[in-house]
């Protein structure tokens, strides 16, 4: 008798777990749709390296430029935007206010805040914009 009660509990446990797991099967997994670069076929470093380490490059660039006065182009934020731009319906580059912005596509997904754009522009062309908070 005790045996059968165990079997029944086991069955319900298994059924519940199965139900919980099959709930989300409706759709594919949400993954970010990383926008293609608009030109060139090679980033400033290899793509896999950039995906993992772009923040180190940007911070290093900042330290070199701001603390040591050495301003170079290769790893500058401005240079990123010459290729990594997303255009809106009117053909204009979107700013970081849009969730479609190149940086935000992944940063929203990974829940990582970036404060670059409180001062820096988030679109190519170098015009001065400030306060583009996420």
């Amino acid at each position: 008798m005790k045996e059968s009660r165990h079997t029944r509990q086991g069955f319900w446990a298994a059924a519940l777990i199965f139900a919980l797991f099959s709930l989300p099967v409706m759709a594919g997994a949400p993954v970010p749709d990383i926008p293609e670069a608009v030109k060139g076929d090679q980033c400033v470093e290899e793509t896999g390296f950039m995906r993992k380490n772009h923040m180190e490059l940007l911070l290093h660039q900042r330290d070199e430029t701001m603390h040591r006065g050495i301003r170079t182009k290769k790893h500058s934020l401005k240079n990123c935007f010459t290729c990594h731009v997303v255009k809106d319906a009117g053909g204009q580059p979107v700013t970081v206010k849009s969730p479609k912005h190149f940086c935000r596509e992944c940063h929203d997904y990974a829940a990582v805040q970036i404060d670059c754009f409180q001062c820096h522009t988030s679109v190519p062309g170098g015009h001065k914009t400030t306060g583009e908070k996420l």
């Binding site: 989300p24 594919g28 997994a29 993954v31 970010p32 990383i34 995906r51 990974a110």
Partner: peptide, 12 residues
Amino acid sequence: VSLKAFVQGLMY
């Protein structure tokens, strides 16, 4: 980002 995609993939 890929790691999160892998985890989401497991869940879906």
